[in-house]
Amino acid sequence: MHEYKKSFSITVRVNGNEYKDRVPSHMTLLQFLKERLHFLGTKEGCSIGECGACTVIMDGKAVTSCLVLAVEADGSSIRTIEGEAKNGELTPLQKAFIEHGAVQCGFCTPGMIMSAQNLLDRNPHPSREDIVEAISGNLCRCTGYEQIIQAVQSVANGATKQNNLVGVKSVGGGGDTEGGQPGGKVSEHNSKSKTGGTL
């Protein structure tokens, strides 16, 4: 019987740079990126393709790198979160994530940004539904997704610096009780977000 190999020399371009390495067949692209190339930004959340934390762009397509073998990525071109900001300049999407409060613990963020950026690359003016479809494979336990959707939407609309969650209506400010005076001023703040509409 033919002898088949269990380890392979592969060449992968990551964020524009070429890397050559020898990998065992069972190594995933995720493991290759993290353990061999030390691109630590990509995260592992479930290793069965359900959570999207390991999303990278492979030859222009968003994939969960936990379900791609490193050997399958031979000859391919990969984009990871580390390749997004250029010369210290954040992408409009990264800026929008910051400005819209789309980040909390940050563990889902790299995968989320890769999914969203891939959408914007395919479709610079996505609808809210397009955005939701593109990121719904990326689980986030902190944010409730709304700020993420708004961040992506703001880039699509070419408008950053707008947080739709705050300041729709605010009445007065807080009382200064830092020194400890009792019964400070009582006032109220309101805000709303319709998830159905656009910004």
Binding site: E50, V63, T64, V68, A134, G137, N138
Partner: peptide
């Protein structure tokens, strides 16, 4: 079926 990323594979 599944998610956008998985449907790419």
């Amino acid at each position: 079926i599944a998610t956008y990323q998985l449907r790419n594979r």
